[in-house]
Design a protein around this nucleic acid. Sequence first.
DNA 1: ACCTGAACACCGTTCAAGT
DNA 2: ACCTGAACACCGTTCAAGT
Lengths: 182, 182
Amino acid sequence: MRSDARKNYDHLLSIAREAVAERGADASLRDIARRAGVGLATLYRHFPTREALLEALLRSTLDELAQKAADLQSSKTSDEALTLWLRDAVAFVQGYHGVVAVMAAALEDADSALHASCTNLRSAGENLLIQAQADGKARADLDGIDLFALIGALGWVGDQPAFNSRVDRIMRVVADALLASK
Amino acid sequence: MRSDARKNYDHLLSIAREAVAERGADASLRDIARRAGVGLATLYRHFPTREALLEALLRSTLDELAQKAADLQSSKTSDEALTLWLRDAVAFVQGYHGVVAVMAAALEDADSALHASCTNLRSAGENLLIQAQADGKARADLDGIDLFALIGALGWVGDQPAFNSRVDRIMRVVADALLASK
DNA sequence: ACCTGAACACCGTTCAAGT
DNA sequence: ACCTGAACACCGTTCAAGT
């Protein structure tokens, strides 16, 4: 990449980070380009789709979250690991309004720029779930996608101003449900 | 209302019903007016806000759902009533993409056209929850707003194509969590 | 190789002008 | 009393033209 292009790329990404934190996953791309002082087509050149932009923004965080699952798995009991990771995953999802809907779509769309990161994340959570199930600590009738859906649902709850203050409590209810013996 | 106005009103409402069923709660108002063969300002005259349109669309269904809660309360045991009503509420929410986010906002906004219907619905569910709690059949650490949030969360799950097939299962998990003894 | 401005086809919302 | 068309300020996406 040419150095002027690199500079635009980095600057766009940092402006986009602010915009997505403020406005959520469907922040105006036009506005991001404008605030970055760059032509709109330049944004499209670097990030051909919204998913590509979000992927560049979130990849490292998503990878860390997946890594965290592996770490917990080797350092905690399976039920603790699942509970603690759920808390981390929900905390992440809370940080970016609406991003989890995009991630849910990416899970099914192999062409999405976010597909690999999301599949990786699903798989990381799935491993925790499987271990807890094998230990008889988690409900046997759920899989990794259900776990992803539950995290997404908690993200949605947190995105609603009316419910935002209740996320922690509702998350505990969900955690209890996951870890029920049924 | 003049008879030509009444005709426009009714026709707009029936077109809007189709559009919202197809496209969800943020269906294009412009498109609704166009399909109804009416000027856009005519739509705004009859329904000054999107909430006003949704209210006209959903009021009777929402009232029925609240009534259903009362019926179940007097005909079933408290835990059965809560489970059955949850199922109905989730089925409703599934029918209209994104509508539950608007309803969540309306719960907090006393000026919203949907405020009364949503408060009424929350209150109906709350009664079922309180009864079940009094019978020691439901978790004591949740209230009517939490119940509303859980229904909304299940609506969100159903709105994601990747998760849609899992709604019933996840709803059962939530129901079990609600009815846990904790 | 990279960038820009303008174009196209959409929105929601408001308002002056018509009957 | 009711309706319409046009205007305004936004979108996302694409593409010819510039350096």
